[in-house]
Amino acid sequence: MNRAPLIFLGVFFALAFSWTGIVLTNQIAYGSLEPVFDESEGKAFPESIPGVAAQGKLVYQDLGCMYCHTQQVRRPGFGGDIDRNWGERQSVARDYIRERRVLLGTMRTGPDLRNVGARFAGEGGREWHIRHLYDPEITSPGSIMPKYKFLFETRKIVGEPSPRAVQRLLPADAQPPEGYEIVLTDRGHALIEYLLSLKDVYTYPEEASRVYVEPQPEAKNGDNAANTNSEAQQ
């Protein structure tokens, strides 16, 4: 008896099952999520990131940052993500819809970066990243993150010093010789702009009631009543 066709059918349907269930069903269910336009803010969320930040994302990809840093915040009460101030709220599917490449990550040798742009913002944030990328131990003693000195360039000052010179931010032992300056390369600049752009601050109306609330600790009826009372008193 030749059972090859039967085996083939079984093998085919086995994978077709999960392909339909995991890939196809979800592609249909939420593969065409759209940004939400907020009337009061006058813009759509999630916002698209500036062009230079998008270039920085390519640097983030080619250096393999995502092998030590995730970009997803788990819900309150599940892991310590919110308690560690890695985000104000849980990450949701809609946060990622503008990203051509989604870099959720699976490893946290370092902290989550989904909202690093909220933790380190503005000019102070930019300077922090410059120091941290040049040598992580300047800002974070004991860090096991690699140095990214190759995103900087030591060059001779020709004419005016460059506005991009960064050595004033670096410690004494990293100072260049007289007549030289340390500048951030274009790739380094783009990477920092990308890191500064990373933040999910907007709460989508349809998610507000569902996912951002702290789970109520399971309480007995009596405790519940007490809680209600104390809230009422406040």
Partner: peptide, 19 residues
């Protein structure tokens, strides 16, 4: 194995922003 294994992979996304 053929029936169960191919559904298992999404356990790598526990707690993640997927359904």
């Amino acid at each position: 194995l053929a029936i169960f294994y191919n559904w298992a992979g999404v356990h790598h996304l526990v707690g993640g922003p997927v359904p």
